[in-house]
Write a protein that binds this DNA or RNA. Sequence first.
DNA 1: GCGACAG
DNA 2: ATCTTGTCGC
Length: 223
Amino acid sequence: MKARTPRTILEAEAIQDELRPLLDLTGPGPRAPATVAGVDVAYDGERLAAAVAVLDGSTLEVVDQVTVGGRVAFDYVPGLLAFREVPALLKALDRLTVIPDLVVCDGYGLAHPRRFGLACHLGVLTGLPTIGVGKTAFVGSYPDPAPERGSWTDLTLDGDVVGRVLRTRHGVKPVFVSVGHRVDLDTACHNVLALTPRYRLPETTRVSDRLSRLALIENVTFD
DNA sequence: GCGACAG
DNA sequence: ATCTTGTCGC
């Protein structure tokens, strides 16, 4: 499905309302994905670089990667991040040789003021299983999880459990995991732990983050 | 009404 | 996201 760029905040919210019903929240999703992709976007004023890195689900080795340059088409507004990043991410995903079994997004999925964060948006448009992993709190409330790696607590919003605050490293600040599309919360957290054998953030986001920044200062051509 | 607010 | 030094710890 193609990305649409709204002209106003009201239009953006209307698009979210239109896409939300297309979300698939039924499946368990991949428990042992053969390949997992990380997506990220880096900025330099008006210019941007999107990167997708596909890793082997077992060895975490990079098996494919794509970067594309572009220009900002929508200002950042909390709750509407997807409209800023999705167009370039779709372009990059289209050029992949290896189609990932799971896509890990920087940010949130269902844990969103309007229950449709970047991970949900990208999932619906691509049809791929997606999850969101945020570095800081955005919405909801939660108790602090125990210090051990693997411990977690519910991230609650308006009485609903919309995600989990998951400790990926002992004694280190936790990450915020939420479902995007075609994956359940248990499976999402299981995958995040598999992707964090050494650092707080998933290897997928670490690689795609590095890639997008590199592309910003060399390689890419902008529109 | 006021402030807070993924990346 | 981005602007930014030194510093503590494995």
